[in-house]
């Protein structure tokens, strides 16, 4: 599945589209499940060295 809705004129953006699928399992309405969230953070950290400012947080 990929962002190609039949008559959408807006480009949803690949990164934005996929990102929703990634966060879908960790977002429960008004809360974000922290355990799952840290896994997502890891996903974006894995391929490069984490920068100093991210480490701080």
């Amino acid at each position: 599945m990929f962002p190609k809705p039949a008559h959408a004129y807006l480009d949803p953006g690949t990164g934005s589209y996929v990102f929703q699928i990634l966060i879908a399992s960790v977002i429960g309405g008004t809360v974000v499940f922290k355990s799952g969230w840290s896994k997502i953070v890891e996903l974006f950290r894995r391929k490069r060295k984490p920068s100093a400012d991210e480490k701080d947080n």
Partner: peptide, 23 residues
């Protein structure tokens, strides 16, 4: 993180298997 995801997938046009399930 949304911004990071955009950066990660920028210029990647291949189908992403992990996303096949949708939401």
């Amino acid at each position: 993180l949304h911004a990071k995801s955009q950066k990660k997938f920028a210029d990647k046009h291949q189908t992403i298997k992990s996303s096949s399930r949708g939401i």
